[in-house]
Design a binder for these strands. Structure first.
Lengths: 290, 290
DNA sequence: AGCTCTTATGAATCATTGA
DNA sequence: GTCAATGATTCATAAGAGC
């Protein structure tokens, strides 16, 4: 039985109540600078680093020595320039003791539209990986993807009847072939993730698609590990973690988000969005090639 | 008649001989930290910022007030961490007077293979855009790309007879639809560039594919403008600029690279790589969807 | 069910207006 | 002057309707 807990409160305070070294994966998307005015008092980009550092200090304390912190963030434009608060945050967090292990790129395939005279649409965000030590846990085999040759060539050659037959006979025949091909044609992914934002989901307006936390949870945790999102919002990370049999803890300062999440959790499973884990997993696997 | 000039020397010195405000576009990929040991004395990542700042100061001087500087760079891994010299360079260059306008991502579709226990393949590099003023020149219309929906779906569905019929009956029924589609066939690109590295070109081991400087030259310059690459290497930027009728200037400290470039330039056109500008342009336009 | 077509919308950015 | 709020711009996706 895995646990799932949501806390209503300010994570700068609530995190202090957690034990040292207790979390395997922290994955979060903090409120962007100058956003969510009402609740966070409108953090100006110039104040963003000072606001975040006490929180990252607590995150460093609660994270397991072999754990990972994935920070989804992107600097806003101010006065025609990208603001530098993200760069400064990385430098300051290293002084706190964090290791800046890697920076993944989330390529947002369906980025927000718009036209400006001196700028194109922003189609990527940073997924910054921090660790407490070089010996963090990473399960690379679990996020392998089909190689281009298989996805691009072999799948296309299948006739429509083959595909239909496969869908009706799960686990036999064509399914076997699939698994053969998989074993011969899987490759490790890169540090560029291609995923569309989920825009049509009225129930939970998540900042990132479920495939995103799913990918990192697979990569950095095992079942029964603890996953933390200190800015849980509508609870996308917690929902995915629970479905994947990980213990999860979320902190949210806005009562609206918190109550909505609690309602969703209380609802019977059949009232939740219908996507099964199986479906989502395949989408993730194929995301790279779409 | 457009000019093309290559200088053998250290750009930190050679740049001082150029006039103020004379360059429309600077595009370069400086030697990565700890690379090219022999000529640059093996710049350690910790020394990289101090080494680069005198150069960026000269670049700021020679760039036109409406010009753009595109810096292709990526931080190396040192001790299990991404080194911070790129972050520090951005912060220091802003103190010099540069505006950090944007950061494009170059997604390297065919990135270098390899496997490490705690890291995936690095499939992206930064293309950092600096400017001297907010009023830089940008010709967005020249780099528009076909929209995904039109290119992928609608065009495929049209039979040849449909297409012919449409051309003869403009303004009615089907023709109207076509014109609606046509008006929405092209879209502005995003700040994520999908380009494969050119690995098969034995003559010039370029750090980036020709489509990359071509894209930025189209976007930020007009014919007869001046393009500068202070670390020209084998001269990819100069070759592309010349083909596009831009004046170009390159500086290279290694005699081998310099001599090879001079040999290539002296060679008759028919001995050069056969790709025409027309071919390259279409590849660039469609690169996003391949 | 499997298509095709329509529609709503999303951690955006800039110029303009008003305080 | 600065600062905040509003409107205009615009495209890949998924859900929904229609055949």
């Amino acid at each position: 039985m895995v646990l799932q807990q949501a806390i209503l409160g300010d994570c700068a305070q609530e995190l202090k109540k957690l034990g040292d070294d207790s979390i395997s994966l922290i994955i979060t998307s903090p409120p962007y600078a100058d956003q969510r005015r009402r609740t966070y008092g409108g953090i100006h980009p110039d104040d963003y680093v000072a606001w975040f550092l006490p929180i990252s200090e607590q995150l460093l304390r609660v994270l397991s020595p072999t754990g990972t912190f994935i920070l989804n963030i992107k600097e806003r434009v101010l006065g025609g320039e990208r603001h530098t608060y993200v760069l400064e945050m990385i430098l300051e967090m290293r002084k706190q003791g964090w290791l800046w292990t890697e920076e993944f790129v989330w390529h947002k395939k369906n980025c927000y539209p718009g036209k400006w005279p001196n700028r194109f649409r922003d189609a990527w965000e940073r997924l910054i990986q921090f660790n407490k030590s070089r010996r963090f846990k990473m399960f690379q085999d679990l996020v392998m993807v089909p190689t281009g040759g298989w996805a691009k060539t072999r799948l296309k050659k299948l006739s429509e009847t083959d595909k239909r037959r496969d869908e009706s006979k799960v686990g036999s025949g064509f399914g076997k072939n699939i698994s053969n091909w998989l074993s011969r044609t899987m490759a490790y992914p890169t540090n560029v993730l291609h995923m569309a934002t989920e825009c049509g989901n009225k129930n939970h307006s998540a900042v990132f698609p479920e495939a995103l936390p799913e990918w990192f949870i697979k990569l950095f945790t095992k079942e029964n590990d603890w996953v933390l999102d200190p800015f849980m919002g509508s609870g996308t990370v917690l929902r995915v973690a629970h479905r994947m049999n990980r213990n999860s803890l979320g902190i949210e300062i806005q009562p609206d988000y918190y109550r909505q999440f609690m309602r969703d959790m209380a609802a019977p499973v059949h009232e939740r969005p219908p996507k099964s884990q199986e479906t989502r997993s395949r989408e993730t696997i194929f995301a790279r090639h779409s």
